[in-house]
Design a protein around this nucleic acid. Structure first.
Length: 756
DNA sequence: GTAGGGTTAG
């Protein structure tokens, strides 16, 4: 084999010509063979170039080829036993990007008594190659051969550790550190702390920090960072105060970390203290620090201060802007946020997602989707956070088509389909009434967390599969996932929607006895709902009277809903009084009482109440239904005539009335309380928003396609009857998601078994 | 002739 003289090698080295020729000759002959210590020949000592040029050559080596040439030369000339030269060769092979560790290992095996440097270098080599186990073995071999570790050994050794190796050997090696008195070396100390952090032993790491009197500020930063990562923000803050006491000088990074903790804790006081640090020039400020300050003020709701910093900045980056935007969305000032968002010089996926998410948290789902469409017109690619937000919007709107499209989009664009995304998909499918698809996602998941199970339980419950939801709950417990208070809301509502009153009561008690969850107001609401819907109004009322928390309007509302179903006008009046004490302007309550008076034919009371409502200017929340068609969400309000297809919808409604009357439909106006002639009552019922949406759906989708509707209020009796008949007469599945649950209409029946 | 590390926005 002819030596390929690398051009750079050839040109940059000031090597004497004679010397270079020799190198060539040697290499040609023996390049395939691994040189050994034993190969050192005394004969070659006759030719003895000075050691220094060889070492110099080694220092300039850029590849193994070059290194081997020089090394062979050293062997040939008997200089390879020189420890400095040996160290150089080992060091190159173990640490250089082009180093060949195997070469080092062979040389190492031939060295009778490697010095500590060589041992350290070999250990470093194993760490670099991610063979921590072999590093440990080598370290133990070193001890066996009577060589003591120094301050380099442990940093090198720990550097390559994985979590498992750290767990296995960490404590023992810590003992070695102490035995050799190396614990106060700042490098060893830092490596030790890092090793413990690597395997999640935060408390031990903290202990190591605590016993060291002169720990580096960066070690403090590492621990604070670790506390932040596991959400122990109080600890982060406390550690910062300890640092102050010990007069350890904070760096900008320390302050950024502490500010991050303050944001999460909403601790304006400490946040301001950090700010004064910066103002007093105790550290040099930078962009990251200023962003962290903005974030702290924003999360504490102090947008004026946040804006003050923002405006004073010379350089702002995307993070500065995004922080301001999300600061406003968090306060619900969505339009101000949008203003800043529109002014951003550039936007990335985080900015877009922050804004989309802002709309979602303000319950402005259609605008969230609109913004997502705008985002797609840019070349900013969404990520899994964006997907979760958009799926959430789809879920709230019942936009199944778009939700499905998002799922395809995720797969096609290789967006990280993580646990959050899958959980959001499950939720979306359930909220769109597609139980099968939700279940399929669940089955295909390899990892499931509390949110997965909870989404399944709640989703099955509201879709009318109470027993399945309860099975799910017991499977969750079998999988050793602990339920939280939301899970129990799902469990209780499974019982409610299925009428399993006694089971529900049992779960309510078990929640505290078995899982230590104290029932909150929402749980009491579920319990009252459970009893009230089953007609056990007296028991429900007893629960309210005896509960340790003061009932709110939602709890009373659950009882009121029961009064409506069972036409208990007297109790209803009492309940309404309670609600109006809490919320004098609650229009929905007046409407419910109207419904009840109408259903009980108490026309005089109804008239008086109507008058009172008019005097007080209380209006009924208009019924509103959404239906998605070809990726667009169409909105219908009761009595709506604004839709472009209104004429067709009217004609279809007329036709439907005829068809359905033949099948035995008769309008049910018992819940209509408008003080009008019977015929008009019938008309107003007939323009309820879900009927408009169903008619629209029948017109615009081919036969056999399921019609899915999302409604803001509870379905009325008449619409419910009508939907059942539509499913039978036109052989169409109709799925209506109302305020509290799903109605799956099929073959003339509803999944709620008329119990809602 | 060798070493190490921390940060901000959804």
């Amino acid at each position: 084999m002819i030596l390929e003289v690398n051009e750079s090698f050839d040109t940059f080295m000031p090597v004497p010509v004679r010397f270079r020729t020799l190198l060539h000759r040697f290499h040609v002959k023996e390049s395939k063979q691994m040189p050994t210590i034993a190969a050192t020949s005394s004969a070659s000592k006759s030719f003895s170039p000075p050691t220094r040029p060889l070492i110099y050559l080694l220092e300039t080596c850029k590849s193994m080829d070059q290194l081997q040439q020089v090394h062979c030369q050293a062997i040939k000339t008997g200089l390879n036993a020189n420890p400095v030269l040996q160290n150089r060769v080992m060091s190159f092979c173990c640490t250089d990007d082009y180093g060949d560790f195997q070469y080092a290992r062979h040389l190492f095996d031939e060295i009778p008594e490697p010095n500590l440097f060589i041992w350290n270098t070999m250990i470093r080599g194993y760490s670099r190659l991610d063979f921590p186990q072999l590093g440990v073995s080598l370290y133990l071999e070193m001890l066996r051969r009577g060589v003591k570790p120094d301050r380099y050994t442990f940093p090198f050794l720990f550097k390559g550790f994985t979590r498992d190796i750290a767990l296995e050997y960490g404590r023992q090696l810590h003992g070695h550190v102490l035995k050799h008195g190396l614990q106060n070396n700042v490098f060893v100390h830092t490596a030790l702390v890092q090793m413990y952090l690597l395997c999640g032993q935060l408390d031990t790491a903290r202990g190591v920090l605590d016993v060291c009197s002169k720990a580096d500020v960066i070690t403090w930063n590492m621990i604070i960072s670790a506390y932040n990562k596991v959400g122990k923000f109080e600890e982060s803050r406390r550690l910062f105060l300890v640092m102050e006491n010990k007069q350890v000088l904070a760096t900008t990074v320390t302050l950024v970390l502490v500010l991050s903790a303050c944001s999460k804790l909403k601790d304006l006081r400490t946040g301001k203290k950090v700010h004064s640090y910066v103002k007093n020039c105790k550290v040099e400020s930078n962009l990251v620090l200023e962003n962290a300050l903005i974030d702290m003020y924003a999360d504490c709701g102090e947008m004026d201060s946040a804006l003050g910093i923002f405006r004073s900045m010379n350089n702002r980056d995307i993070i500065s802007w995004t922080t301001i935007v999300s600061g406003f969305t968090n306060l619900g000032e969505i339009d101000v946020a949008r203003n800043y968002f529109d002014k951003m010089p550039e936007k990335d996926y985080v900015s877009w997602t922050a804004m989309i998410d802002g709309y979602i948290r303000s319950n402005r789902f259609k605008e969230a989707l609109e913004l997502f469409r705008n985002m797609q017109a840019t070349n900013v690619k969404p990520d899994e956070f964006t997907m979760v937000s958009v799926l959430t919007a789809c879920a709230h709107l019942g936009a199944l088509e778009l939700g499905e499209w998002i799922r395809t989009y995720i797969n096609r664009n290789k967006i990280n389909n993580d646990l959050f995304v899958r959980n959001a998909l499950i939720d979306m499918y359930f909220k769109c009434g597609d139980v099968d698809k939700a279940e399929r996602i669940f089955r295909e998941m390899s990892q499931r967390d509390k949110f997965t199970w909870t989404a399944m339980i709640v989703g099955l419950a509201v879709n009318g599969h109470g027993e399945k939801a309860l099975d799910m709950f017991s499977n969750m417990l079998k999988a050793s996932i602990l339920p939280d208070e939301i899970t129990y809301i799902g469990v209780l509502s499974a019982c409610t929607h299925t009428g399993l009153v006694d089971k529900g009561r049992k779960y309510f008690l078990r929640m505290t006895s078995q899982h230590g969850i104290e029932p909150n107001i929402a749980h009491y609401g579920c319990l009252v709902d459970l009893l009230a819907r089953a007609g056990r109004l007296k028991e429900a009322y007893d629960v309210i009277k005896n509960m340790p928390i003061k009932a709110n309007s939602i709890v009373w509302g659950a009882l009121l809903a029961g009064c409506r179903v069972y036409r208990e006008a007297d109790m209803a009046e009492m309940v309404v009084k309670h609600i109006l004490e809490l919320e004098p302007d609650n229009g929905a309550v007046y409407v419910l009482l109207c419904n009840i008076y109408a259903a009980c034919k108490r026309w005089n009371e109804l008239r008086e109440l109507r008058q009172m409502m008019m005097d007080k200017g209380i209006k009924k929340t208009p019924g509103c239904s959404l239906i998605e068609m070809n990726g667009r969400v169409h909105e219908f309000v009761a009595g709506d005539r604004s839709h472009p297809q209104t004429k067709n919808i009217d004609a279809k409604l007329d036709k439907m009335t005829q068809d359905l009357k033949l099948a035995g439909y008769s309008p049910d106006i018992s819940e209509v309380f408008l003080d009008v002639a019977e015929e008009d009552k019938e008309n107003s019922v007939f323009r309820h928003s879900e009927k408009l949406a169903i008619a629209f759906g029948l017109i615009n989708s081919p036969p056999g396609v399921t019609i899915r509707i999302t409604k803001n209020l509870r379905m009325c009796m008449d619409c419910h009857n009508m939907a059942k008949l539509v499913s039978k007469v036109y052989n169409r599945e109709v799925i209506v998601r109302d305020r509290t649950r799903f109605h799956h209409f099929k073959h003339g029946l509803c999944s709620c078994k008329d119990y809602w």
